[in-house]
Computed example of a mutant assay.
Amino acid sequence: MTTGSDVIIVSTPEDVHALAVKREIEGRGGSCAILSNEAFPAAEALTYAWDGTEETRELGAARFAEPRRHSVWLRRFRPYTLDDKLHGEYRDYARRATDSTFEGILCGRARLIVNPAERNRFIDHKALQLQLALECGLPVPSTIITNEPEKALEFLSRHSRVVTKSIASWRFRLIETRFIDSSAIPDFSSIKLCPVLMQEYLAGMIEYRVTIIGMRVFTAKVDLAEAEHPVDGRLHFSRVMEAAELPTDTEARLLRFHRAAGLIYGAYDLRCDASGIPHFLEVNTDGQYLFVEIETGLPISAAMADVLLRRSQ
């Protein structure tokens, strides 16, 4: 098939976020295709060619023809399917070569990419996020990322309540934020093998889930006062979520962060301290937002459709 779609979303066919945006695009008279990367290269072919007069760009059954240009939403990549005969450095090379070719064919002539893959990879580093947040004037909880047991113990001794969270994302797995029991001295010897992230616990019962698309800000306030697990509101439906607005200075600083990070889409988590001041926790470049849209009525899918169709920024 020759794809003349206005928008191509990289995700699985059953991804509800991709389907919601596809529906919004088609409701605006645009065309949208959802393309999964999972079968490449073991079960699907990919080809780029230039013979001096004609260019060929093919991803499986999809054929990309000029002069039409499309927008791309790199919503959710799956692991590539590699042949079992590949091992070690050869398997790693095959994965990187496939990734390079797939993204190059898909994005090389795109009019818009949400978000460019290199920006996603760059901003995914938690230590980098925290440094950029501080540069943009956003309050950040006291934090340590280390593989030195002594420094971890020292940090724990200086704060009455401390939480730990994952540093790197786990694909298709939720790792919750947890309290560290400071009543007993924990054994941190194993962190020599891998750094750990610890933060002071912010005692406020208000969190903000902020979705930014282009320069449009959609804010949901989460009241965790009655939540069974207030340290991580994602784990319980007893939370109360409603559409809200951030303090003006906080929103301005968050937009400054968004621009500096080079993002078009970002899902931000902020949490208030006991005084009600929002603190930056993290941004997820492929974070979920549909639960926010369902609970608050905020038109986030519509905003994504508008940006992909280049009808707003």
Rank of each mutant, 00 (worst) to 15 (best):
T53A: 06
N115E: 00
R95E: 14
R95N: 13
E293K: 08
I212A: 00
E242D: 02
R96T: 14
T146R: 04
I213P: 10
K22E: 13
K165G: 15
A39C: 10
T164W: 14
T3H: 01
L132E: 13
P139T: 02
D83L: 12
L138N: 02
V283Y: 01
I213C: 12
S36R: 11
D269T: 15
R78S: 15
P41Y: 11
A94N: 07
R75N: 00
Q129K: 06
R95Y: 14
A220C: 10
S142V: 08
S190W: 15
D269H: 13
I123E: 00
T81H: 14
N37S: 11
L106Q: 08
H229R: 13
M215T: 12
Y90K: 08
T143Q: 02
E154R: 06
L128F: 13
I34C: 07
W73A: 01
S11M: 01
F257R: 04
A225W: 00
I25E: 06
P186A: 09
D99P: 03
R68T: 14
A261H: 07
A305M: 10
D223M: 02
K221V: 06
A43K: 12
H279P: 11
G233K: 11
E55I: 14
S183C: 10
W73F: 08
I277T: 14
L132D: 12
P116L: 03
N115P: 00
K192G: 12
L112H: 04
Y289D: 04
A303P: 13
K85I: 08
T146H: 03
F122S: 08
L281W: 11
R111V: 14
K126I: 14
D84E: 05
I8H: 00
T296Y: 01
A252W: 03
S11T: 02
E245M: 02
